[in-house]
Design a protein around this nucleic acid. Sequence first.
DNA 1: CGGACAACCTGGTTGC
DNA 2: TGCAACCAGGTTGTCC
Length: 285
Amino acid sequence: MPELPEVETIRTGLEPYLTGSGICDVEILYPKVLKDAEPEEVRKRICGQKGVSLKRRGKYLIWELSSGDRLVFHLRMTGQLVLTDPQEDIRKHTSFIIRLDAGLELRLTDTRKFAFMYLWKKERESPPGSLGELGPEPLEEGFTPVYLRGLCTDSKTRIKNLLLDQAKIAGIGNIYADESLFRAGINPRTPAGELSAADLERLHRTIREILREAIAYRGTTKRDYLDGFGAAGAFQERLLVYGRKGEKCVRCGRDIVRSVLGSRGTYYCPVCQREKAPKKNKGRE
DNA sequence: CGGACAACCTGGTTGC
DNA sequence: TGCAACCAGGTTGTCC
């Protein structure tokens, strides 16, 4: 579910509440939510600590505590990290509850149970999981047209698969990959190395545009995504291809198509994102 | 290196 | 209505 814009929306919402308030209790209802620690250890280690900052890197959220330890969250497909009134019923599929001294609870609810939390201890240098292997943030300075061209040059990987590779660019998922490629007029199956400098310039621009707009609209709610207060996003209204199989392309009127690429559903316009003609054989006409 | 696919889970939708 | 098949904003590991 949540890609960069959704995680960023959660972050900005929760930040004022999670910085400054203290943790008074932790309840782990689904122990597998912890990847590398036991519930009791987590409880002992974080109770009594205060939140210092809440940061985002790619699709990860990193909550730094006064002890120097950090809680690292990844919501995967259906995870919802919501600040909740303790009076509210505990929803089905709630993985953990972190009680704050401000009289609120941070709850993770996750139907598919793929979401997880790491306890990143202060004495550990290397970031847990793939957090340390992420590519640059697409909205920051390191992501330049030159960088994107560097990734693509001589690459046989289809451009959509490249955009989804978190080690190359952090935070793009299935929705925004399809939307960026549509706006740039690029077929998702194109081998990255075949794209021209102009194509990549356009793609670089559309990626940034889409992500910024989606943040402004507080993310895309197709089904499960909710922000840190339990509210849906609004960008689903602005999607031009994702989830619109059989609907008319806004640009040319042809039907949007769904195909499978890298075992992910992929939506595109077969006219506006036509596959490039195969290269002609040299010599013959 | 690149691609295909299963695994981790549950539930909603579609089609017969 | 029933039931099976297919689908899902992600990531990781295995196999070819």
